[in-house]
């Protein structure tokens, strides 16, 4: 399936990537080539085949619902771009 520039603009928006128009044109070419490679899958009959969930058929482990980690907020926030009073700061969302 070939993608054009407007398809890439839509995908880039879904992926939250701000891309200039020239980049979208280039990516349309690259992504179309990758999808052409992926299209080899179409020739395979997968009727009755179950999708693989885990190579060793393991299921998700559960653990008791009790806290296992200490509070490290100050430590974690020391690497944040912008914080104030223990909160992460982003541009105003609500007017």
């Amino acid at each position: 399936m070939a993608l054009d520039q407007s398809d890439v603009e839509k995908i880039a928006h879904l992926a939250r990537l701000a891309l200039p128009a020239a980049a979208c044109t280039r990516y349309a070419h690259d992504l179309s080539n990758i999808l052409a490679l992926v299209a080899q899958m179409d020739a395979v009959d997968t009727a009755g085949v179950a999708p693989m969930a885990h190579p060793l058929h393991q299921t998700q482990r559960l653990r008791p619902d009790v806290p296992t980690e200490p509070d490290q907020r100050a430590h974690f926030q020391s690497i944040a771009p912008q914080t104030d009073g223990g909160l992460y700061l982003v541009p105003r969302v609500i007017e």
């Binding site: 993608l3 890439v8 995908i11 879904l14 990758i34 999808l35 395979v44 179950a50 999708p51």
Partner: peptide, 24 residues
């Protein structure tokens, strides 16, 4: 972007599910 595309509405079965079947 490839990942976003193959997981987007309407394409999931044709790509991701199909791939997981062939993976089997």
């Amino acid at each position: 972007m490839i990942g976003t595309y193959v997981l987007s509405a309407g394409y999931y079965d044709a790509y991701y599910l199909k791939a997981q079947k062939i993976r089997h």
